[in-house]
Amino acid sequence: MKPAPFKYIAATSLAHALALKSEHGDEAKFLAGGQSLMPTMNFRLARPTVLIDINGIDEVSGVDLSETGPTCIGAMTRYRTLERDARLAAAFPLIREALPEIAHPQIRNRGTLGGNLCHADPASEMPALAVALRARLKIQSSTQRRWIAASDFFLGALTTDLQPDEMLTTIELPPLGPRTGSCFMEIARRRGDFAIAGVAAMVTLDDDDTCIGARLVFCGVGEMPVDASDATDLFKGEAISDKAIRDVAALAQNMIDPGGSVHASADYQRHVAGVLTERALTTAHQRARDGQ
């Protein structure tokens, strides 16, 4: 299991990296953390002819947390950095809750948020979180830059809206409203494995404990993150009850499209997606009420 030959270029700046990608297009791949790309190269399932190493670029790394405005995370920010950022954890509890579910410490020491999003594994946690948190993604090429909503970025399994000359450079997260509670839960065979089903749930209450917004996004149960937030319309303008939560979970179960795998049947995925939804919504609701 050794990778096929390729030409390696260490990019020295963002502009350099983008110029290289523009030159080599689909033939080239960016090497970010490499924790998904390198295994596929070792299996020779991926055979880029040019590998552009962007680990030496500081411009697209780091967390810029804002008290009022959006928070910006550089695409090359490693999980390890996110994990150790107490302010980020406080601002986005979902991220704090999901990070330990992502592989293992050694992988998180190298793996990057942007690399993970661009890999677009449907069972991966971060794409679902990006959608749940209404992230905006900054995409750059050597000639232009654009912003895209995370919900529009994922097009299918391992497929994104990125063009051959583009790079994801920044993930922008809008601030959560007050009285927003969130919860991430997943079922995997072993801790750190990709999710059989995972769900990011968010509930926002007004001062009377009436639900004024909720988000529900799944990983592992479709070709890409499944945004089932429409199911939470049942909550709108109501005080959330256990029954309403069960009803939302049942609705959401019909909005996902699990494919089954060697680890779980599609029926089981759908079943536990419902169970997790009930539990995650219950916890998110509680946290919103308790101001956590």
């Binding site: 079922i187 065979r189 029926d267 089981y268 995925q269 536990v272």
Partner: peptide
């Protein structure tokens, strides 16, 4: 056994 298999068997 596995969680998924247990689900199927019990159902």
């Amino acid at each position: 056994l596995s969680p998924s298999r247990l689900y199927e068997l019990t159902r």
